[in-house]
Design a protein around this nucleic acid. Structure first.
Lengths: 193, 193
DNA sequence: CAAATTACAGATTTCAATATTTGTAATTCA
DNA sequence: TGAATTACAAATATTGAAATCTGTAATTTG
């Protein structure tokens, strides 16, 4: 049974075209043609090309968030979860590059015109990190946690997940280095002031 | 007295053109014309356009390194120097963006074709950071310092100096956040293992 | 003979005409 | 009347011919 939700069908077609032809050749006109409808009809469901791209990016980023949200919500010691959360985020991003670099570049480019989606994604990640840090503080393990900690920690490990930097490094595995950085941060959070 | 060193005069002319017209309009032909010589003569002193750009970038980056090297070589407590070193690096980069964004973009673009110069720059910064960390370890303040620490610390604070990220944030001052990240790292280095 | 020049082939860039795409409005369809 | 279409203006992208640039070699200058 093919879904009857027009927005979903349009997004699926757009994603398929993005995968096939890359971001430069993704036109609303082509999406419409692939679905056998006029391009004006697409504008009934999406106010603009930017909005369509935004939904596409949000959907893609949402898929990355699932496993991370699971780790953030788990019981268990916060330091362990922090490390697994960071390593998972790094691995997810790196996988996208090595498995399908063209696709990653496509979404990287697409994200340019979809700032709000990216901001939402970052807000989700920030919330997850805040939760983990709060758990560690509540358990008395991390007296150093403050209101700024989530932002600071996320910034410090961003070189391992930021698209521009992940793209630059190509497929090199930096998990070992990330693990060391997390250990350093963990140690820092264990001391007060 | 104008210098008689041809390489220096060529680099000066190239830098002036880069400032005036941006990186896309910087042609060897124009550099030669500005000096009243044939472009072929420029190739007597630089093997290629890439090499010329490389020297230009190296010179520019070298100017940033001076104040940093001074801080690294100072006597005084390592944690204090680490913080000032990191803040100075951040400020230097940010100044370039806010004072003259076009110029920064020019050198960012120029750096693309001058990878070796950038690598050399990073090697210098790495060496400075290594020295500061070694001092702190020798003083018994930072038992956590290992052979990897310089790289790890540099990576963690790279969001505050990497061109792509400094450029993205525009002129926003993130010194306060950087200071917190440094404090976190400092605390981490103070604990062993 | 060292320092520069002119001459030139191949690669790259520019530019303007042409075609496509975006987004809106007026119109048709069921 | 809701769902789509055709029609169209303005913005954007494509294209290919002409101009420019890079890098090398042969030649000139003092």
């Amino acid at each position: 049974m093919t879904t009857d939700d027009p927005r979903g069908r349009i997004l699926d077609a757009a994603e398929a075209l993005l995968r096939r032809h890359g971001p430069d050749k993704l036109a609303v006109v082509d999406v419409a043609r692939a679905l056998g409808m006029s391009h004006a009809n697409v504008y009934r469901y999406f106010g603009s090309k930017t909005e369509l791209f935004g939904e596409l990016v949000a959907r893609w980023l949402g898929r990355l968030e699932g496993p991370l949200a699971a780790i953030a919500a788990e019981p268990g010691p916060a330091p362990d979860r922090l490390k697994r959360w960071a390593l998972t985020l790094h691995r997810q991003k790196r996988e996208k590059v090595s498995v399908d670099p063209e696709m990653f570049a496509a979404f990287d480019k697409a994200a340019e015109m979809a700032r709000p989606s990216v901001a939402g994604h970052l807000a989700h990640l920030h919330a997850q990190l805040t939760a983990i840090l709060a758990d560690g503080k509540a358990a008395g393990l991390w007296p150093g946690v403050t209101e700024h900690s989530a932002l600071d920690v996320f910034t410090a490990i961003s070189p391992f997940s930021h698209p521009a930097l992940v793209l630059a490094d190509g497929a090199t595995d930096r998990s070992a280095q990330l693990a060391r950085v997390i250990d350093l941060i963990d140690a820092g959070l264990r001391s007060s002031t």
